[in-house]
Amino acid sequence: MNNIFVICEMDEGKVADVSLELLTKGRSLANTLKCQLEAVVLGHKLTGIEKEIFPYGADVVHIGDDACLAPYTTLPHAAVINGLFKVEKPQIGLLGATTMGRDLGPRVSSALYSGLTADCTSLEIGDHEDKKAKKIYKDLLYQIRPAFGGNIVATIINPDCRPQMATVREGVMKKEIFSANHKGQLKKIDVSQFVKPEHLVVKVLERHMEKSRVNIKNSSIIVSGGYGMGSKENFQVLYELAEVLGAEVGASRAAVDAGYADHDRQVGQTGITVRPKLYIACGISGQIQHTAGMEESAMVIAINNDPMAPINKIADYVITGDVMETIPKLIKFYKKNSK
């Protein structure tokens, strides 16, 4: 009772990375709170899936294995989670901020009347004093996220409602094996107890998955462009630099919104979080929305014509100059020096 629950997601027959990252975070929160970490996996043909989860420190794995739970649709998943949560009364419920987690999370939070914070970049445990009500709340989940287009950082709490729910993007938390030999308890969910015919009204007629074309997350060098690149055509020079460096091209949200790059290249709070060896930020001003997703890069080079751009403060090298002039030079001198 009152444990931490991570709702795991399946990705091509395996537990998704984002769920394993949340289990690692959940484990450390559970240690702080001295409670247990429990995982929930819903899907079909999940035999043995608990073996992927236990090494990340789960004390209990709940498995709901039924044909009605794959492919994912909202209502049967929500019905199972709502039912399980009503019995188990978790204090914290975590989901990946994926298309699934962001579809399921709000549905569950609405049904259970619990607070949900989207796209958290940090989760901590702390106390809260409500001065008006003269009440002290112990050990709340601090759900920390940039807000207002990334201009502020807000700490959100749910003082009275449980579970305290949060979604987190892939790559934000670090995935770490807790113990390769760790074993917990396996609990089978009786899916038919929760899923009724009225939950099966939405049908997936066709599903076409592509292998991700872009592999920003695992790239050791990222050349990223912002709104300051000026146009989609100018972005071409970033692909050229990436090509010679063996890098991937990333983009800020402003650049994606402006149509300079596709969404799967977006780095930042609402995109991908990256930790490359080298991050070259070109024409990126450095709103927290963006820096939240790249500030752990080992080295940052910022190229910007604004010497006051916030990105410069977290950069190891600041090149003050025009991107369309500077980037071709980087290509030119790299070619020259690598001969």
Partner: peptide, 18 residues
């Protein structure tokens, strides 16, 4: 159910940059 506990302006820890 959710309350905003604190709001902080974004302050970057300035790195020593070249």
């Amino acid at each position: 159910p959710t309350k905003v506990k604190t709001i902080e302006n974004v302050v970057f820890q300035a790195k020593e940059s070249k």
